[in-house]
Design a protein around this nucleic acid. Structure first.
Lengths: 187, 187
DNA sequence: CTTACCATGTAAGGCGTTACATGATTCA
DNA sequence: TGAATCATGTAACGCCTTACATGGTAAG
C-alpha cells in the first residue's frame, strides 16, 4: 500500500543529474544526501537491476581505462516516473534521534551522563556543519551554471540552518543542566 | 552486532516514569516522543512479552474498573539495564527527509513543485511547533516537581529550536525560489 | 608488499510496519 | 445505534543493513 521504498527514486534522481556506477551512487548518497538520507550497497545494486528490468535505466559496461565499471543512465521512461513521484505529496519525513531518547529518559542516569550526550551531539553537529559550509561555498559560486545546483543549494542551506539550531540548543541545554546540577548541590 | 533495536529501551524508559499498559505506551510514543521517535503496536506488544521473559518488567492484569488492562512495571533489573544503555554512547541519530529528497532532485519537476513542497513542509512544521509550545508551557510550570520533567523539557526545547529553524529556512527558501523564477522569465 | 580504496554483487536475518482479528465501552 | 476510542494481540511481508565473497588497482 504505502510504498515506503524510496531507493528507486533516489537512484533515478541521482541519474537525472549524470550517469553513474553503483559505487558512485553510494558515494553520492553518503556525501550529497548524507545528512538527510542513507543507503547501502545491499539495496543499491538490487534496485539498479530492478530499474533496468523496468526500463527506467540502461546499463553500459565499460572496460575503457582499467577497471570494469557499469555505468547506468536514466531513460525517458525513468525520467517520467521520477517527475511523477516528485509531483506527489511527501508521505513521511522521519527522525530517529537516539540522543533525544537518552535525554528523555535521562533521570535514571543523571545530569552528568546527559551532559556527556549533549557534548557529543554538539561536536558531531559542528563537524557536519563545517562540511556543509564548504559545500555551500562551492555551490554558491556556480549556482547559475546548472539549475540542479540551485535545488542542491536549497538542501544544503537547510542542513546548515538545522545544525546551527542544534548547536545553539546544545549551549542552552548545557547551561540549564549546569544550573540544575548546582541547585541539587544546594538542597 | 550493532544492536539497532531500541524498542526495549523506549519501553523501559517510559516505564521508569510510571506503570503503563501497551496501549498507553503507544500513546506516549506518539505524543511525548513523537517528534523524534515512532513505534507501532506490532512492535510494542511483542517487546513487552520479551522484556517480561527477561525479568525486566512485570505485568499486572487488572479488571478493577471496567476494561481488562495489563499494566507493566519496570523491575530493578530493568532499571539497571536501562541505566547501562543510557551510559553507552549514542550509536546513530537518523534523519530520513523525503522532502529534502524531492528538493534535491527537484529540477526534473521545476520550481513550482518545489515551492509546493516547501509550503507543505512549512505548514507541517508550524503545526508541530504549536503543539510543542503548549508542552513547553505546561512543563516549565512544574519543572521542580519531578526531575523527569527537566529531562523531558530538554527534548521539547530541542524540538522547538528545530522547528523554528525549519520555518525560517522555509521563508528563505521561498524567497530564493521566487527570485529564480523571476530571473528565468527575464532570460 | 600491504593498506586503502575501487568495484560488483549475494545471502541471511533483523526490525518494524500494515493489516487482520476480536471485542468492550463511551458518547452523541 | 453507530462511530470513535480503548485494548490486546498475531501474521505477513517489505525494506534495509550487515556480513560475506571476490578481485583489481594505486600509493606509500
Amino acid at each position: 500500500m504505502a510504498n515506503t521504498k524510496k531507493m528507486d527514486q533516489v537512484i533515478l534522481g541521482l541519474l537525472s543529474h549524470e550517469d553513474l556506477t553503483g559505487y558512485d551512487i553510494k558515494k553520492r548518497i553518503d556525501s550529497s544526501l548524507g545528512f538527510f538520507w542513507s543507503g547501502s550497497f545491499g539495496s543499491i545494486y538490487p534496485t539498479l537491476s530492478l530499474l533496468e528490468k523496468e526500463g527506467k535505466v540502461t546499463k553500459t559496461e565499460t572496460t575503457d581505462s582499467s577497471r570494469e565499471k557499469i555505468f547506468y543512465s536514466i531513460t525517458p521512461s525513468g525520467r517520467d516516473s521520477l517527475k511523477q513521484w516528485l509531483g506527489n505529496p511527501v508521505e513521511k519525513d522521519e527522525i530517529r534521534f537516539e540522543t533525544m531518547l537518552k535525554l528523555f529518559m535521562g533521570k535514571e542516569a543523571g545530569f552528568d551522563v546527559t551532559e556527556y550526550h549533549v557534548n557529543r551531539f554538539e561536536e558531531d553537529s559542528k563537524n557536519k556543519l563545517q562540511i556543509l559550509r564548504v559545500f555551500e561555498k562551492r555551490l554558491s559560486k556556480c549556482l547559475d551554471e546548472d539549475d540542479n545546483h540551485k535545488y542542491y543549494f536549497l538542501t544544503v542551506s537547510f542542513g546548515i540552518r538545522t545544525y546551527e539550531a542544534y548547536i545553539e540548543w546544545c549551549e542552552e541545554a548545557k547551561k540549564k543542566i549546569r544550573k540544575w546540577k548546582k541547585n541539587k548541590g544546594n538542597l
